[in-house]
Simulated scan of single mutants.
Amino acid sequence: MARYGFTVTFPPAGVDPPPNADDSNMPRRYGISDPAAAAKYGYELPPDSTEHPRGPNLSPAAIAVLTGRKALNPRAEKVTSTSQGKKIPDGGCQQESFDKLGARIDFALPSRLDHDSLEKSQDDPRVQKALTAWSACMKSNGYTVADPYAAFDLVPKSGSGTPSREEITLAVADVSCKKDTDLVRIWHGVDAAIQKGQVEDNQLALEQLKEKNTRAVKAAEAALRG
């Protein structure tokens, strides 16, 4: 970036994660499950009290040099190949840095396995039985809903971040029925067993990926020291 006249300081990696910072999203993997949070926030995310560092305020010209595109969206239109008379690398300085490191963190395989295990677990007879029991419990509370993922859509959201009384009531019933039917424990047990099998079936590929990611981290550390 400095070659093109830009001084840019990015927050350290990992200090500004999204609410669900990994694909598992355990706090809501099987829907909401915290009774205190449900009673206070409904289906909304609790307030984030962490102080997050502000990212750099990038001008359109800086974005073009950084990414090689007209916006931060990876599908944005590519920019012309020069800036201030200098050729912009294909993919911008961002891609150039990855090319120089020769390695990049890759979570594709574990992400796919994570998605597959959750999907397969929902077809397991034990989970299906627990979901049916949860649905019946919800029915007794006045809600017709097949699974916890659909419960979120039953009550219109205010959009203000402040849950309505109807949303709170629904969320409390949702979590209470999960507890009464032991849904989360049953579902998690099946999910975990599937993942154990996945690890065994993909052991070589996962070991190779671990080595690849370790090389990427070491390459980044060496570049920072340099």
Results as ranks from 00 to 15, higher is better:
residue 72 L to F: 12
residue 50 T to Y: 00
residue 168 I to N: 03
residue 45 L to I: 06
residue 14 G to T: 00
residue 208 Q to F: 03
residue 225 R to C: 01
residue 147 D to N: 15
residue 32 I to Q: 08
residue 11 P to E: 14
residue 183 L to A: 01
residue 60 P to T: 14
residue 120 K to R: 11
residue 224 L to E: 05
residue 164 S to C: 05
residue 207 E to Y: 02
residue 197 G to S: 04
residue 213 N to P: 09
residue 93 C to S: 08
residue 144 T to I: 08
residue 151 A to E: 11
residue 5 G to M: 06
residue 88 I to E: 05
residue 45 L to C: 04
residue 122 Q to Y: 03
residue 49 S to G: 04
residue 180 D to I: 02
residue 97 S to H: 13
residue 171 A to M: 04
residue 2 A to I: 09
residue 204 L to Y: 13
residue 188 H to L: 08
residue 217 V to R: 09
residue 117 S to T: 10
residue 1 M to F: 02
residue 142 G to F: 11
residue 89 P to R: 04
residue 82 T to C: 08
residue 8 V to I: 15
residue 163 P to Y: 15
residue 98 F to T: 02
residue 67 T to Q: 09
residue 148 P to L: 15
residue 5 G to D: 02
residue 128 Q to S: 09
residue 213 N to V: 10
residue 225 R to H: 06
residue 141 N to S: 10
residue 52 H to D: 02
residue 157 K to T: 13
residue 77 E to Y: 05
residue 135 S to W: 03
residue 103 A to C: 05
residue 203 Q to N: 04
residue 143 Y to T: 08
residue 77 E to G: 07
residue 120 K to D: 14
residue 112 R to M: 01
residue 21 A to K: 11
residue 69 R to M: 05
residue 92 G to W: 12
residue 188 H to T: 02
residue 209 L to I: 14
residue 166 E to N: 12
residue 198 Q to S: 05
residue 70 K to M: 10
residue 68 G to W: 04
residue 110 P to N: 12
residue 215 R to E: 14
residue 16 D to M: 00
residue 105 I to N: 07
residue 174 D to K: 01
residue 181 T to V: 13
residue 64 A to K: 03
residue 57 N to R: 09
residue 193 A to P: 01
residue 211 E to F: 08
residue 154 L to V: 11
residue 158 S to G: 12
residue 97 S to G: 05
residue 149 Y to P: 00
residue 160 S to Q: 07
residue 94 Q to T: 05
residue 19 P to H: 09
residue 167 E to D: 09
residue 155 V to T: 12
residue 9 T to D: 10
residue 13 A to D: 12
residue 107 F to I: 03
residue 106 D to S: 12
residue 129 K to Y: 07
residue 47 P to E: 00
residue 109 L to K: 10
residue 81 S to N: 13
residue 55 G to D: 13
residue 148 P to G: 09
residue 54 R to N: 11
residue 145 V to I: 09
residue 96 E to Q: 12
residue 131 L to Y: 13
residue 198 Q to C: 03
residue 133 A to F: 07
residue 120 K to I: 09
residue 222 A to V: 06
residue 174 D to H: 00
residue 175 V to R: 02
residue 17 P to Q: 10
residue 156 P to Q: 11
residue 102 G to R: 00
residue 16 D to P: 00
residue 7 T to G: 03
residue 149 Y to G: 03
residue 211 E to D: 11
residue 185 R to A: 14
residue 4 Y to G: 10
residue 202 N to H: 14
residue 111 S to F: 06
residue 150 A to T: 12
residue 59 S to W: 13
residue 215 R to Q: 15
residue 195 Q to I: 06
residue 30 Y to M: 07
residue 79 V to Y: 01
residue 50 T to A: 13
residue 25 N to I: 01
residue 82 T to W: 15
residue 135 S to P: 08
residue 89 P to W: 04
residue 56 P to F: 13
residue 9 T to P: 06
residue 86 K to Q: 15
residue 39 A to V: 01
residue 187 W to T: 04
residue 107 F to Y: 09
residue 71 A to G: 14
residue 208 Q to I: 06
residue 142 G to Q: 06
residue 93 C to M: 07
residue 147 D to P: 02
residue 142 G to H: 10
residue 72 L to W: 06
residue 169 T to A: 15
residue 224 L to A: 03
residue 21 A to D: 12
residue 91 G to E: 04
residue 112 R to E: 05
residue 94 Q to Y: 02
residue 60 P to N: 11
